[in-house]
Design a protein around this nucleic acid. Sequence first.
DNA 1: ACTCCTTGGGAGATCGATCTCCCACACTGT
DNA 2: ACAGTGTGGGAGATCGATCTCCCAAGGAGT
Lengths: 330, 330
Amino acid sequence: MTAPRLIDVAAAAGVSRATASRVLAGTPRNVDADLVRRVEEAARRLGYRTNHSARALRTGTTGTVGVVVPSLANPYFVQLADALAQQVRAAGGQLVVSDAANDTAIEAEQIETLLGGRVDGLLVVPVSAGASGPAVRAAAERAPVVLFDRWATGSGTVAVTLDNAAAMRLLLDHLESLGRRRIALVAADQASSSGAERLAAFTEARGTDATTVLLPSFTTDAGRTAGRRIAEQRDRIDAVVCGADVLAVGLVSTLQRSAVSVPGQIAVTGFDDTELLELLDPPITSIRHPLTAMAERALTLLQAPAGEREESVERFAPQLVVRASTDADA
Amino acid sequence: MTAPRLIDVAAAAGVSRATASRVLAGTPRNVDADLVRRVEEAARRLGYRTNHSARALRTGTTGTVGVVVPSLANPYFVQLADALAQQVRAAGGQLVVSDAANDTAIEAEQIETLLGGRVDGLLVVPVSAGASGPAVRAAAERAPVVLFDRWATGSGTVAVTLDNAAAMRLLLDHLESLGRRRIALVAADQASSSGAERLAAFTEARGTDATTVLLPSFTTDAGRTAGRRIAEQRDRIDAVVCGADVLAVGLVSTLQRSAVSVPGQIAVTGFDDTELLELLDPPITSIRHPLTAMAERALTLLQAPAGEREESVERFAPQLVVRASTDADA
DNA sequence: ACTCCTTGGGAGATCGATCTCCCACACTGT
DNA sequence: ACAGTGTGGGAGATCGATCTCCCAAGGAGT
């Protein structure tokens, strides 16, 4: 009943532990083809699986990468985690996903837990641009850490993010090219770097007079609240840029309930290009993140020498995905 | 730069490794209060964190529970994983979530990976009632495994699930009490135990003549396909029971696009009570799973002696959540 | 035929924390 | 004062796999 160990496999194959290890761990070393076969045969017959803790202890490496996301309730982060998982798996590793429940205290706790020798490196999508910094810095001093999708000040490490300013310009240019002039912003979570950047880019482009509705959190419920406020001002607005898809979905459904036609009276855009957008009629224009390329880059940085991870921000180019919520003919 | 080890802490505190271990691992053993303080002081000062691999190797336990879900793209499974995570964390452990991408081959691979000494026990929400069996059985022979939310034949272990038949009856009774008589079923994924049970319960209650639309997968896209078919038959149907929320959401939005009023002409119900349901107008009636109680039970079983995990199915009582998609006054 | 390589393979050390003894000391009771 | 009892604390073994030597055998070159 007790699990077979390497020494059992070695005995069954009539070789030493060292040889069995060389075969099974794939150490780059010539081993006689016949012995290789005997060891593999024995391992299979006994149902041997290498003990992960023992290997990790000896090699000092776990083959696991961790990622802490603000909340899996937001489908964007599920999508993000999925992109990372694919890249990690392609490299022969495993990804462990932790949820910070949008709380920097829980986030710090999750980081601590993962760092207890469970992961080789850690990716963090920081909850807050300010408050997440210290925990990330502490982590970065003990293990490779790379920020993903958002940055945090004082983190002491590099961040791989979207170029939010460029994304906002894409959206605004698109709306303006369709003749929309009275554009409002619905955004949330100014504490996050992405929320702040999107707001800043909007304000820079449209001036401080433009209508902005700021909400406490990235939830569809917040989106509905915004929808009510926008509906009240329907005569002074002909387009709404939302800082997140979840907001856009709540907003559109509320606007429609208030008999505001989308895009007829008000065009609406999302941000993040999640599946949610396809739910509604009309489907919603959004910004697609190059998640695969970002994931690849983040993992490369994670394995790079610490010197290449100095505090800085790398920005990836966004892509506009036009759907019927802005352009009925699209 | 190299991480401090227990022996460093012991030296700094002027005690032996054994004593330092007793203090930091909290072994139930009397240690002089003054020494306790000195050890804790030293650990804090050095920034000591116990090496997880070493502890796991020595104790044979990792404090980690794994769960393999069919797909995190379905928000129900995110919710389910979250309920488990809370219970696990409350018990001082950690939950690792793996996504099987709705593929039994990937599922088997994920199970194998997690079982390589990374987890003390494994929860599986099997992709398929038939095809997932062998991989689960193999796992259950090596470590504690409990099925969750769905069962699989030949799994060799216990399953903690919802009483799907009772849930279906709740929905049908509710619809019938509102005067709906021509009730259709929209379901997907008959390969899963929950899909099969829901279909069976529906057929048993409504007979084989009732309209049923079977779809290949639990996705909102499939829900839209169903919506088109139901819309064509709008005159012969006054209610639709969906086998999953994601289906219901796609269905409702398509019905509305086809100018079918909900619940006016057709009442619609979901299944799983995810947040998605709140997105639309009207919000959708659904079935709530007692996830907390189920999670608690599953974790208890995971820690029970193997004898208590013989192949069987435990069913938990569902709860009907009435919303406006069936009863406009609700 | 002899030395020099090359290459396969084994013995033992090692990773870091915990557990199992076992010892030393203090205290009690006679 | 001495055996008996209990309690804090240390030395060394141990978990399982890998890594570092180092040795043996066989082939090549002179």
